[in-house]
């Protein structure tokens, strides 16, 4: 049975698309047939992060409107065999998405894929609502700062009350917290909320902590999901998060300030 996974946050710029790309790629690398769907109609980004922007012919809205078949619109990733992308439309706005249309496309995707990763737009309006409405599980991406935490909290409230599972009275959407842009040094100086602070406020299961890293920006600009950069701390942290998502018990890393020498020794030991 296919699982629908929404990557959401409420707040913009916290790393939803980076996370969707990384988690989707990670699932595909582990052998699951995975599709990443960009719900950010009008501000199409996922294709850039995935490095397939030059191959977009048809998009999500075309499929909803019946202007293209699903298989015409799905873009197969060139690096990972089991991975496909469904791009958002750049020329339309979020009103082009309808609940019936989204449901129809998701149902078709369910037949072909094991995991459907929905990359939600920021905000709590129609696009974000439709991205989370059909979800079985949700990854709530949060930065360690108060406004991001508050917006995530709001999003969790919507997941618990406005999702299809909530409306039908089924088992609630499984919620995961992914803390991104985490900088242990700034946490120790008291400039950033700590993992414990955020966990305490949001009271949901911690899926992973992605350290603030140069590798993320570099990967984005090159159109390579950061999880493929397995030397970088961010790539490894995403990899751990995917394992945890699949039920493995993996210890959290990159939470403490490490002295340079130790990091190098650790990396030396792993290779």
């Amino acid at each position: 049975m296919a699982k629908i996974l929404v990557v959401t946050s409420g707040k913009g710029g916290v790393g939803k698309t980076t996370t969707s790309a990384a988690i989707g790629t990670g699932l595909a690398m582990r052998g699951y047939k995975t599709v990443i769907v960009d719900f950010d109609v009008g501000l199409r980004n996922l294709d850039l992060i995935m490095g397939c922007e030059r191959r977009v012919v048809y998009d999500f809205v075309n499929v909803i409107n019946g202007e293209a078949s699903l298989n015409q619109a799905l873009i197969k990733d060139k690096r990972i065999e089991n991975l496909s992308i469904l791009a958002a439309s750049q020329t339309r706005d979020k009103d082009a998405l309808t609940q019936e249309g989204v449901e129809k496309v998701l149902n078709e995707l369910r037949e072909q894929f094991d995991y459907i990763v929905c990359d939600s737009p920021a905000g709590i309006e129609k696009g974000a609502y439709l991205a989370m409405y059909f979800a079985d599980e949700a990854i709530v991406v949060t930065n360690p700062e108060v406004s991001s935490v508050r917006d995530s909290d709001r999003m969790l409230g919507l997941l618990a009350s406005k999702s299809r599972r909530a409306e039908k009275g089924e088992e609630s959407v499984k919620e995961h917290l992914l803390l991104t842009r985490y900088n242990p040094e700034r946490v120790s100086k008291g400039e950033m909320l700590s993992v414990t602070d955020v966990e305490e406020i949001l009271a949901i299961r911690l899926l992973g902590v992605i350290p603030e890293s140069q590798a993320v920006l570099k990967a984005s600009n090159q159109g390579i999901p950061v999880i493929l950069d397995d030397i970088s701390d961010a790539g490894q942290a995403y990899s751990d998060a995917v394992d945890r998502l699949l039920g493995k018990d993996v210890a959290h890393r990159f939470l403490e300030v490490q002295k340079k020498g130790i990091i190098q020794r650790l990396f030396g030991g792993r290779e």
Binding site: D153, R154, G157, A160
Partner: peptide, 8 residues
């Protein structure tokens, strides 16, 4: 029995 979130 479930957390009451912001906005609720």
């Amino acid at each position: 029995r479930t957390p009451v979130r912001g906005g609720q």
